[in-house]
Simulated assay, not measured.
Amino acid sequence: MTKERRVLVHPDWEALVASVAARFLTKIIDVLEEKDEIHIVLTGGTTIGDGVLGAINASPARDTVAWSRVHFWWGDERWLPAGDPERNDEQAFDALLSHIALDPAKVHRFAASDAGLDLDAAAAAYADELASATEDERGFPVFEVMFLGVGPDGHVASLFPGKDEVLVRDRTVVAVRGAWKAPAERLSLTLPVINASERLWMALAGGDKASVLGLALAGASVDEVPVAGVLGRKRTVFFVDQEAAAEVPESLIAPGDEFHALVDQNS
């Protein structure tokens, strides 16, 4: 299948999060009809961690999903103590996970800073957990959907521009030190793991994301704009609001009816 990227523009933030939530519920219900278990990667942030996950939780379709058959992973995590509200996993539990009938054994959190491991050992532990969840020689599961936020500087997960971690190709998980955004210490999946996902769904809202999205779609250097190097195996979709779409080439904005057909069949 030809890899491709599409941009779907929404009138505002509320419409964006509602659209992503509805598409996600439809997609995983469909995939669970074909597979016994699936793997999903979550992220934090206002748009996905709060908005999209909260909209999934509020949907009447929420309880039609066999959540106990879904593995939840995270694309990155802040090196903070367990239970800290700034951790991505805590945000996900507040918004969605604490409200659904999941299987605790299928919830794969990164280690917390008070777990008795140092940052490098925590990265190695998550890499081992990824490997233990699959028989694939790549060393990590097939992720049906990976959610990613995008920072104004173009970072995805905790892969920041100009940092060595964005160029790592020989590991699945990296320890991040000196991140440009607090907290400076983090854990992150690497770009090869991100790009091995079946579907990469990124959500961007606000005018401060317009420039970096335009650069990414124009083929900027991955080292300078990490999101430029993101490309899923089947589909890569940028869900954006009008402000974030200000610098997106018209040729990459999918018309509504056409996009719906593509998503329903392939995304």
Rank of each mutant, 00 (worst) to 15 (best):
V248A: 04
G116M: 11
G207A: 05
L252H: 02
V225M: 05
G214A: 02
P85F: 10
L262W: 12
N266P: 10
K181D: 04
V156A: 07
V145F: 02
A182G: 03
D50Q: 15
G162I: 15
A61V: 00
D241E: 04
Y126F: 09
L204P: 00
V9G: 02
R235C: 11
M202N: 00
G45H: 04
V107L: 06
L80N: 13
H71N: 09
H260V: 09
V107S: 05
V168S: 15
L167N: 11
G256C: 13
R78H: 13
D63Q: 05
R171T: 01
E33A: 14
G151M: 07
P60H: 02
R235W: 14
F259W: 15
W79C: 07
L200V: 09
G229A: 02
S19N: 10
S197P: 15
F140K: 10
V227A: 13
R62E: 12
H10D: 10
S59H: 02
A244T: 11
A123F: 00
L97D: 02
H99C: 10
G154N: 13
L191Q: 06
F238E: 00
A111N: 05
V222S: 04
R109I: 13
A111W: 12
V65P: 03
H10V: 13
A246L: 15
G232D: 11
T190P: 10
D223R: 12
G214N: 04
G229R: 04
L102N: 13
L42R: 04
V9I: 06
A123S: 00
D120V: 15
P249Q: 09
V7H: 01
D114G: 07
R62Y: 11
A210W: 00
F143S: 08
E37R: 13
D128Y: 04
H99Q: 11
F93P: 00
R78T: 14
D103M: 07
V145K: 00
W73H: 15
A244M: 10
A203V: 01
G44I: 02
V20R: 01
R235K: 12
L53Q: 04
K234F: 05
V166N: 09
I38F: 07
V17P: 01
T172N: 14
T2A: 08
V17F: 04
A105F: 04
V168E: 14
D36A: 14
A244G: 12
P161F: 10
G149V: 08
L159M: 08
D63Y: 01
A131H: 06
L213N: 02
E77M: 05
L102C: 13
G44Q: 01
V222F: 02
P11R: 15
K35M: 12
L187C: 12
